[in-house]
């Protein structure tokens, strides 16, 4: 699997878009530092962008990479290599390059603006973790969809719909339910429902770490009230890890049965 991963990674590194993506984060973070040198303010501003953007970009890259590397996959399938190694190697190649982009794009400006001497290092690491795990989850889900769908356009649309659902529609439905069932106690429901949206989980995780109740929203508040900050964070991290493991398992399941 490591050999396949190596080739997928070097393939990704040839793509101009991965550099544009890294450059975008570099410029964005630097610009935010120009506006305010306060590290925690920059973290909050970045949070909202990363929560929406990193899943979208990761999903798009993953779909495009799978669809474009079909020849490579067919070539590999005739070699003495495990099927799961081929697909996992490619998925981790994409996921790793997205994570490296985030790490460089955010890490370099933060280091430059004195991350190590400030007390914000853990807050920054949580932000980075959220960005990376969202990239992993959404590239995995997109890769799974790409494997499942024969039609490229259909696969692409499904991936975008999936992102739209978690980034926008889910919150809308959630609010709608809260308003409609205003008279009932919905705390447990809110708690449960937030576990099913990785973007929400990542947001709750960061806000619990930063301890900003004003920005926490309903789910964040419920998390803190019911579980306290530390257990709440542990549950959020555990759920995110489950979310990241699901597509890895799904990719294997589809890959073992697919014809080429």
């Amino acid at each position: 699997m490591l050999k396949i991963l190596k080739y997928s990674l070097s393939d990704m590194m040839r793509s101009r878009w991965i550099y544009i993506y890294t450059l975008f984060y570099l410029l964005l973070t630097t610009a935010l530092f120009w506006l305010s040198p306060d590290l925690s303010k920059v973290i909050i501003s970045l949070m909202n962008i990363i929560l929406v953007l990193s899943p979208l970009i990761a999903a798009l890259f993953s779909t495009l990479y799978f669809q474009q590397s079909r020849e490579f996959t067919e070539l590999l399938l005739a070699q003495p290599v495990r099927r799961s190694s081929i697909f996992w190697g490619q998925y981790f190649g994409v996921a790793l390059s997205m994570s490296l982009s985030l790490l460089t794009g955010l890490g370099v400006p933060f280091l430059f603006y004195g991350l190590l001497v400030s007390g914000e290092i853990w807050n920054f690491l949580v932000l980075l973790f959220a960005g990376i795990i969202l990239s992993l989850i959404f590239s995995g889900l997109a890769y799974y969809i790409a494997l499942k769908t024969e039609n490229k356009i259909k696969g692409f649309s499904l991936t975008i719909l999936l992102w739209l659902f978690f980034a926008v529609i889910y919150d809308g439905l959630f609010l709608l339910i809260l308003v409609l069932f205003n008279d009932y106690p919905l705390d447990k429901f809110a708690l449960g429902a937030s576990l099913f949206n990785p973007i929400n989980l990542a947001r709750v995780l960061i806000l619990l770490k930063l301890d900003i109740s004003a920005l926490m929203g309903y789910t964040g508040a419920v998390f803190q009230q019911f579980l306290g900050s530390a257990p709440g964070m542990s549950i959020a991290v555990a759920s995110l890890l489950v979310w990241a493991a699901l597509p890895v398992w799904g990719i294997r399941r589809v890959a073992m049965k697919k014809d080429f």
């Binding site: 393939d11 040839r14 590397s69 079909r70 020849e71 490579f72 067919e74 070539l75 005739a78």
Partner: peptide, 12 residues
């Protein structure tokens, strides 16, 4: 050893 019908390689 396998020779596929249509030689499809990674283009780049």
């Amino acid at each position: 050893s396998y020779l596929p019908q249509i030689a499809r390689f990674p283009e780049n």
